[in-house]
Design a binder for these strands. Sequence first.
DNA 1: CTCGACTCCTGTTAGC
DNA 2: TGCTAACAGGAGTCGA
Length: 259
Amino acid sequence: MPEILEIESYRELAARTIGREVRAVDAPDAWFLKQGLDAEALASALIGHRVDGARRIGKLLLVDLHGAPTLGLRFGMTGRLVVDGATAIDALAYGPARENPAWDRFRLVLDRGTLVINDPRRLGGVLLDPDESRLGVDAMTLTSAQLAAVLERSDAPLKAKLMDQARIAGLGNLLTDESLWRAGIDPARPAGSLDARETEVLAAAIRETLTLLGTRGGSHTGDLQRERRRGGLCPRDGAPLERRTVGGRTTYSCPAHQH
DNA sequence: CTCGACTCCTGTTAGC
DNA sequence: TGCTAACAGGAGTCGA
Protein backbone atom coordinates (compact mmCIF):
# COMPACT_ATOMS: atom_id res chain seq x y z
CA MET A 1 0.00 0.00 0.00
CA PRO A 2 1.16 3.54 -0.40
CA GLU A 3 3.37 4.54 2.49
CA ILE A 4 5.97 7.29 2.58
CA LEU A 5 8.10 5.73 -0.19
CA GLU A 6 5.22 5.51 -2.64
CA ILE A 7 4.01 9.02 -1.84
CA GLU A 8 7.53 10.31 -2.45
CA SER A 9 7.43 8.80 -5.94
CA TYR A 10 3.97 10.32 -6.40
CA ARG A 11 5.47 13.69 -5.46
CA GLU A 12 8.11 13.37 -8.14
CA LEU A 13 5.40 12.46 -10.63
CA ALA A 14 3.18 15.36 -9.56
CA ALA A 15 6.12 17.74 -10.06
CA ARG A 16 5.72 17.21 -13.80
CA THR A 17 2.65 19.44 -13.63
CA ILE A 18 4.55 22.47 -12.29
CA GLY A 19 3.77 25.50 -14.41
CA ARG A 20 0.58 24.04 -15.85
CA GLU A 21 -2.80 25.68 -15.34
CA VAL A 22 -5.91 24.01 -13.96
CA ARG A 23 -8.66 24.10 -16.58
CA ALA A 24 -11.26 21.79 -15.01
CA VAL A 25 -11.87 19.70 -11.89
CA ASP A 26 -13.65 16.38 -12.19
CA ALA A 27 -14.71 14.99 -8.79
CA PRO A 28 -17.38 12.37 -9.49
CA ASP A 29 -17.14 10.77 -6.05
CA ALA A 30 -18.44 13.13 -3.35
CA TRP A 31 -17.27 10.75 -0.63
CA PHE A 32 -13.69 11.31 -1.79
CA LEU A 33 -13.87 15.03 -0.96
CA LYS A 34 -13.09 15.60 2.72
CA GLN A 35 -13.81 18.30 5.28
CA GLY A 36 -17.08 19.47 3.74
CA LEU A 37 -15.58 20.05 0.31
CA ASP A 38 -17.77 19.72 -2.74
CA ALA A 39 -16.95 19.65 -6.43
CA GLU A 40 -18.17 23.19 -7.05
CA ALA A 41 -16.12 24.74 -4.27
CA LEU A 42 -13.06 22.84 -5.44
CA ALA A 43 -13.52 23.92 -9.04
CA SER A 44 -13.97 27.58 -8.18
CA ALA A 45 -10.90 27.49 -5.91
CA LEU A 46 -8.57 25.82 -8.39
CA ILE A 47 -9.56 26.65 -11.96
CA GLY A 48 -7.36 29.24 -13.59
CA HIS A 49 -4.46 28.76 -11.18
CA ARG A 50 -1.05 27.37 -12.06
CA VAL A 51 0.79 24.60 -10.19
CA ASP A 52 3.66 26.11 -8.23
CA GLY A 53 5.14 22.99 -6.67
CA ALA A 54 4.64 19.52 -5.22
CA ARG A 55 5.54 18.78 -1.60
CA ARG A 56 5.08 15.83 0.72
CA ILE A 57 4.67 15.49 4.47
CA GLY A 58 4.54 11.85 5.49
CA LYS A 59 1.81 10.26 3.41
CA LEU A 60 0.17 13.55 2.47
CA LEU A 61 0.92 14.94 -1.00
CA LEU A 62 0.62 18.71 -1.28
CA VAL A 63 0.13 20.49 -4.59
CA ASP A 64 0.77 24.21 -4.25
CA LEU A 65 -1.07 26.49 -6.65
CA HIS A 66 -0.27 30.10 -7.43
CA GLY A 67 -2.81 32.35 -5.74
CA ALA A 68 -5.00 29.46 -4.58
CA PRO A 69 -5.27 27.22 -1.51
CA THR A 70 -2.96 24.21 -1.38
CA LEU A 71 -4.45 20.97 -2.65
CA GLY A 72 -3.94 17.99 -0.30
CA LEU A 73 -4.07 14.46 -1.72
CA ARG A 74 -4.32 11.31 0.36
CA PHE A 75 -4.05 7.82 -1.09
CA GLY A 76 -5.28 5.50 1.64
CA MET A 77 -4.49 1.87 1.09
CA THR A 78 -4.91 1.46 -2.66
CA GLY A 79 -4.66 4.92 -4.20
CA ARG A 80 -2.40 5.61 -7.19
CA LEU A 81 -1.42 8.89 -8.76
CA VAL A 82 -1.67 9.00 -12.54
CA VAL A 83 -0.17 11.99 -14.37
CA ASP A 84 -0.60 12.24 -18.15
CA GLY A 85 -1.66 8.60 -18.10
CA ALA A 86 1.52 7.39 -16.40
CA THR A 87 1.82 5.85 -12.91
CA ALA A 88 4.83 6.15 -10.65
CA ILE A 89 4.85 2.54 -9.52
CA ASP A 90 3.83 -0.70 -11.16
CA ALA A 91 2.71 -2.77 -8.20
CA LEU A 92 0.88 -1.92 -5.01
CA ALA A 93 0.61 -4.49 -2.24
CA TYR A 94 -3.06 -5.34 -1.59
CA GLY A 95 -4.05 -3.39 -4.70
CA PRO A 96 -5.59 -4.83 -7.81
CA ALA A 97 -3.20 -5.71 -10.61
CA ARG A 98 -4.75 -3.53 -13.26
CA GLU A 99 -6.26 -0.09 -13.39
CA ASN A 100 -9.92 0.46 -14.01
CA PRO A 101 -11.13 3.88 -15.17
CA ALA A 102 -14.19 3.40 -12.96
CA TRP A 103 -11.86 3.82 -9.96
CA ASP A 104 -10.84 7.34 -10.99
CA ARG A 105 -12.04 9.32 -7.97
CA PHE A 106 -10.54 12.72 -8.76
CA ARG A 107 -9.18 14.38 -11.86
CA LEU A 108 -7.50 17.69 -12.59
CA VAL A 109 -7.63 18.67 -16.23
CA LEU A 110 -4.66 20.93 -16.96
CA ASP A 111 -3.83 23.08 -19.95
CA ARG A 112 -1.49 20.22 -20.80
CA GLY A 113 -2.35 16.73 -19.54
CA THR A 114 -4.15 15.45 -16.44
CA LEU A 115 -3.54 14.54 -12.80
CA VAL A 116 -5.73 11.67 -11.58
CA ILE A 117 -6.21 9.66 -8.40
CA ASN A 118 -7.23 6.09 -9.12
CA ASP A 119 -8.34 4.37 -5.90
CA PRO A 120 -10.31 1.09 -5.98
CA ARG A 121 -11.14 1.02 -2.27
CA ARG A 122 -11.85 4.72 -1.83
CA LEU A 123 -9.77 5.12 1.33
CA GLY A 124 -7.92 8.11 -0.04
CA GLY A 125 -9.27 11.63 -0.29
CA VAL A 126 -8.90 15.22 -1.41
CA LEU A 127 -8.44 18.18 0.93
CA LEU A 128 -8.25 21.92 0.39
CA ASP A 129 -5.72 23.84 2.47
CA PRO A 130 -5.02 20.88 4.81
CA ASP A 131 -3.77 21.52 8.33
CA GLU A 132 -0.10 20.60 7.94
CA SER A 133 0.55 21.17 11.65
CA ARG A 134 -1.40 18.03 12.46
CA LEU A 135 1.39 15.87 11.07
CA GLY A 136 4.47 14.93 13.04
CA VAL A 137 8.10 14.91 11.93
CA ASP A 138 8.59 13.35 8.52
CA ALA A 139 9.93 9.80 8.81
CA MET A 140 12.58 10.44 6.12
CA THR A 141 14.33 12.98 8.34
CA LEU A 142 13.67 11.34 11.71
CA THR A 143 16.58 11.64 14.13
CA SER A 144 17.11 9.39 17.13
CA ALA A 145 16.56 12.41 19.42
CA GLN A 146 13.18 13.03 17.79
CA LEU A 147 12.32 9.36 18.05
CA ALA A 148 13.23 9.39 21.75
CA ALA A 149 10.90 12.36 22.30
CA VAL A 150 8.05 10.51 20.59
CA LEU A 151 8.51 7.33 22.62
CA GLU A 152 9.30 8.66 26.09
CA ARG A 153 6.89 7.96 28.92
CA SER A 154 4.31 6.21 26.76
CA ASP A 155 2.64 2.94 27.66
CA ALA A 156 1.17 2.48 24.18
CA PRO A 157 2.62 -0.33 22.06
CA LEU A 158 5.78 0.80 20.29
CA LYS A 159 4.26 0.01 16.90
CA ALA A 160 1.22 2.22 17.57
CA LYS A 161 3.50 5.15 18.35
CA LEU A 162 5.56 4.65 15.20
CA MET A 163 2.38 4.66 13.10
CA ASP A 164 0.80 7.68 14.80
CA GLN A 165 0.91 10.24 11.98
CA ALA A 166 0.59 13.14 14.41
CA ARG A 167 3.99 12.17 15.86
CA ILE A 168 5.88 10.54 13.01
CA ALA A 169 4.46 11.09 9.53
CA GLY A 170 4.91 8.47 6.87
CA LEU A 171 5.28 5.02 8.40
CA GLY A 172 2.56 2.50 7.61
CA ASN A 173 2.07 -1.09 8.60
CA LEU A 174 4.61 -2.69 6.27
CA LEU A 175 7.46 -0.23 6.85
CA THR A 176 6.89 -0.37 10.60
CA ASP A 177 7.01 -4.17 10.75
CA GLU A 178 10.11 -4.23 8.52
CA SER A 179 11.91 -1.58 10.61
CA LEU A 180 11.16 -3.32 13.91
CA TRP A 181 12.23 -6.66 12.44
CA ARG A 182 15.54 -5.13 11.34
CA ALA A 183 16.01 -3.46 14.71
CA GLY A 184 15.28 -6.71 16.57
CA ILE A 185 12.67 -5.04 18.78
CA ASP A 186 9.24 -6.44 19.73
CA PRO A 187 6.42 -4.28 18.28
CA ALA A 188 4.29 -4.81 21.38
CA ARG A 189 6.85 -3.38 23.81
CA PRO A 190 5.60 -0.30 25.67
CA ALA A 191 7.01 2.62 23.69
CA GLY A 192 8.55 4.18 26.78
CA SER A 193 10.45 1.01 27.69
CA LEU A 194 13.19 1.45 25.09
CA ASP A 195 16.56 2.49 26.46
CA ALA A 196 18.84 4.96 24.71
CA ARG A 197 20.73 2.29 22.83
CA GLU A 198 17.56 0.61 21.56
CA THR A 199 16.15 3.98 20.47
CA GLU A 200 19.27 4.64 18.41
CA VAL A 201 19.16 1.16 16.90
CA LEU A 202 15.52 1.67 15.94
CA ALA A 203 16.12 5.12 14.43
CA ALA A 204 18.97 3.66 12.38
CA ALA A 205 16.79 0.73 11.30
CA ILE A 206 14.05 3.11 10.12
CA ARG A 207 16.60 5.13 8.11
CA GLU A 208 18.11 1.97 6.65
CA THR A 209 14.69 0.53 5.80
CA LEU A 210 13.56 3.70 4.03
CA THR A 211 16.79 3.98 2.06
CA LEU A 212 17.00 0.31 1.06
CA LEU A 213 13.34 -0.20 0.19
CA GLY A 214 13.37 3.14 -1.61
CA THR A 215 16.06 1.88 -3.97
CA ARG A 216 14.30 -1.47 -4.32
CA GLY A 217 11.07 0.19 -5.36
CA GLY A 218 8.64 0.48 -2.47
CA SER A 219 7.29 -0.49 0.93
CA HIS A 220 6.39 -3.98 -0.28
CA THR A 221 10.00 -4.88 -1.16
CA GLY A 222 11.19 -5.62 2.38
CA ASP A 223 12.88 -8.87 3.39
CA LEU A 224 10.15 -9.58 5.96
CA GLN A 225 7.44 -8.90 3.40
CA ARG A 226 8.07 -12.14 1.51
CA GLU A 227 7.24 -14.11 4.67
CA ARG A 228 4.42 -11.84 5.79
CA ARG A 229 1.79 -14.56 5.62
CA ARG A 230 0.41 -17.32 7.79
CA GLY A 231 3.13 -19.94 8.30
CA GLY A 232 5.90 -17.54 7.24
CA LEU A 233 9.46 -18.04 8.52
CA CYS A 234 11.90 -15.39 9.72
CA PRO A 235 14.33 -14.64 6.85
CA ARG A 236 17.08 -14.02 9.40
CA ASP A 237 16.94 -17.13 11.58
CA GLY A 238 14.23 -19.38 10.15
CA ALA A 239 11.98 -19.25 13.21
CA PRO A 240 8.21 -19.32 12.59
CA LEU A 241 6.95 -15.74 12.53
CA GLU A 242 4.36 -14.63 15.06
CA ARG A 243 1.13 -13.09 13.72
CA ARG A 244 -0.68 -10.78 16.13
CA THR A 245 -2.80 -7.66 16.27
CA VAL A 246 -0.73 -4.82 17.71
CA GLY A 247 -1.99 -1.26 17.76
CA GLY A 248 -5.05 -2.48 15.90
CA ARG A 249 -3.05 -3.77 12.93
CA THR A 250 -2.00 -7.19 11.73
CA THR A 251 1.59 -7.55 12.84
CA TYR A 252 4.28 -10.04 11.90
CA SER A 253 7.38 -10.38 14.06
CA CYS A 254 10.06 -12.91 14.94
CA PRO A 255 9.86 -14.24 18.52
CA ALA A 256 13.42 -15.54 18.22
CA HIS A 257 15.23 -12.27 17.62
CA GLN A 258 12.78 -9.43 18.34
CA HIS A 259 12.69 -8.59 22.05
C1' DC B 1 -3.95 14.46 26.99
C1' DT B 2 -3.59 9.28 26.23
C1' DC B 3 -5.12 5.09 24.58
C1' DG B 4 -8.00 1.42 22.61
C1' DA B 5 -12.16 0.09 20.21
C1' DC B 6 -14.83 0.80 16.42
C1' DT B 7 -16.03 2.29 11.60
C1' DC B 8 -15.55 3.31 6.80
C1' DC B 9 -14.35 1.44 1.96
C1' DT B 10 -14.22 -2.84 -1.72
C1' DG B 11 -11.06 -6.17 -4.46
C1' DT B 12 -8.91 -10.39 -3.35
C1' DT B 13 -8.54 -14.74 -1.38
C1' DA B 14 -9.35 -18.62 1.68
C1' DG B 15 -12.46 -22.09 2.57
C1' DC B 16 -16.61 -24.68 2.32
C1' DT C 1 -17.02 -25.01 -9.85
C1' DG C 2 -19.37 -21.37 -7.46
C1' DC C 3 -20.46 -18.98 -3.67
C1' DT C 4 -19.71 -16.60 0.92
C1' DA C 5 -17.22 -14.54 4.49
C1' DA C 6 -13.02 -13.01 6.16
C1' DC C 7 -9.25 -10.05 5.30
C1' DA C 8 -6.38 -6.03 4.18
C1' DG C 9 -4.92 -0.91 6.44
C1' DG C 10 -5.02 4.54 6.58
C1' DA C 11 -7.49 7.74 9.11
C1' DG C 12 -11.31 9.70 11.72
C1' DT C 13 -14.37 9.50 15.77
C1' DC C 14 -15.73 8.42 20.34
C1' DG C 15 -15.59 7.15 25.14
C1' DA C 16 -13.05 5.80 29.32
